[in-house]
């Protein structure tokens, strides 16, 4: 089952490589990874998505907790949560396609953030499935480049991951 694990860790050099190293060391998978400092500059928030049985996920969270720089972590998929990913996608846009792409972008509630006479760059946020669906929808129109941020997530309601 796919899981979103959200980690609060010391914002120190080497901390990220310890998390990533753990996954290769113990033969776990990382599907996506997003990391940045939080409002407290001494802490980083790292969100990763991974796949595994309950047993494997339990081991992953225990092993992550063992890393000295990891302060706290939560498996967001255990409760209701919001997940978002940001995608920037560059599309060939000429002639009649320009209007068609614009319509599709509107349907997906994306934004065109850069325009040339032949290219649109589109910004889209949503969960992974929505981003996949957009690529499929415009697929025939010539995707030039795709960059995705990896999943970020947060629990719904009062639940917070903080010190």
């Amino acid at each position: 089952m796919r899981r979103i694990i959200s980690i609060l860790m010391e914002n120190e050099p080497g901390a990220l490589s310890r998390v990533v190293g753990l996954f290769s060391q113990r033969n776990y998978n990382i599907e996506s990874l997003a990391v940045a400092p939080t409002e407290d500059p001494t802490l980083s928030r790292l969100t990763l998505t991974t796949e595994g049985s309950d047993k494997v996920i339990e081991q992953i969270t225990k092993q992550l907790n063992k890393l000295i720089e990891v302060v706290k972590l939560v498996d967001l998929t255990e409760g209701s949560h919001v997940e978002r990913e940001l995608m920037l996608i560059k599309l060939r846009a000429t002639g009649a396609q320009r209007a068609e792409i614009k319509r599709t972008v509107d349907i997906f509630r994306g934004q065109i953030v850069d325009v040339t006479s032949t290219v649109y760059t589109v910004q889209l946020t949503g969960d992974g499935e929505k981003l996949d669906a957009f690529i499929q929808a415009v697929g025939t129109m010539g995707v030039l480049e795709v960059v995705r941020s990896g999943v970020s997530g947060i629990a719904r309601g009062e639940k917070v991951l903080s010190l």
């Binding site: 047993k55 339990e58 081991q59 092993q63």
Partner: peptide, 11 residues
């Protein structure tokens, strides 16, 4: 003392 040692190989 190490939670990661528990249920690692045998539940």
């Amino acid at each position: 003392i190490d939670p990661a040692s528990i249920s690692k190989t045998v539940q």
